[in-house]
Nucleic acid binder design. Structure first.
Length: 185
DNA sequence: TATACGATCACCT
DNA sequence: GGTGATCGTATAC
């Protein structure tokens, strides 16, 4: 079931947690890839010094102020892209960074062993799924090119690990927020 | 116009 | 543990 806009128009931390165990779907050149989200981070509002919108509305951050359920894709370090999902009501800047996912593949042998491919890291994830700036501002509630589907069963709170966000040492006290969520192995 | 640096990763020691 | 690749963005001039 495709996740609708109402799901994203909620508190960013809740969306970040609830996106764990969901399926990230990517349609590219006639193929559809499916990956289970296993790690996310929340970036919430102008008061969050780690959030790109902490310096206000700019051409780059504009998408985060728009309707929830859109993709915010930006280039980082000149060589990687990061995929975020815009959350909260219009005009409140927030997004969930998809940091990691597990590709769903068919068994490789008759012993029914699956070959798990981990897209661990936002840059690697985007590279594999061919996600780049062309998908910035893309509406991910349409079920085309890029969207998310509900995971079954839902991940239980006891299976979710909280920790500090990565690579935001500049964010002062905000670096201590436990806004990184991952599924315990 | 110029410059500093980053929501990363691969590779090195 | 550390560093280089590489360029869009924000900020300063």
């Amino acid at each position: 079931m495709i996740i609708n806009r109402k799901f994203y128009r909620r508190n960013t931390l809740k969306v970040a947690r609830d996106l764990l165990g969901c399926f990230l779907m990517r349609e590219y050149r006639g193929k559809i890839w499916r990956a289970m989200t296993i790690e996310t981070e929340a970036y919430h509002g102008e008061d969050d010094l780690a959030c790109h919108a902490s310096r206000g509305r700019t051409p780059r951050t504009e998408v985060m102020y728009g309707e929830p359920g859109c993709a915010y894709v930006y280039m980082i370090y000149g060589m990687y892209h990061c995929l975020n999902i815009v959350t909260e009501k219009k005009d409140f800047p927030a997004a969930v960074l998809i940091r990691g996912a597990k590709l769903c593949r068919r068994p490789t042998s008759t012993k029914s062993k699956t070959s798990d491919v981990y897209l661990d890291g936002p840059g690697k994830l985007c590279k594999f799924l061919h996600i780049d700036r062309k998908l910035n501002k893309w509406d991910i509630t349409k079920g085309e090119k890029l969207w998310l589907e509900k995971g079954i069963p839902k991940v239980r709170p006891s299976e979710i690990k909280k920790s500090q966000r990565i690579g935001i040492d500049y964010a002062q006290y905000c670096r201590e927020y436990l806004w990184r969520f991952s599924i315990k192995p």
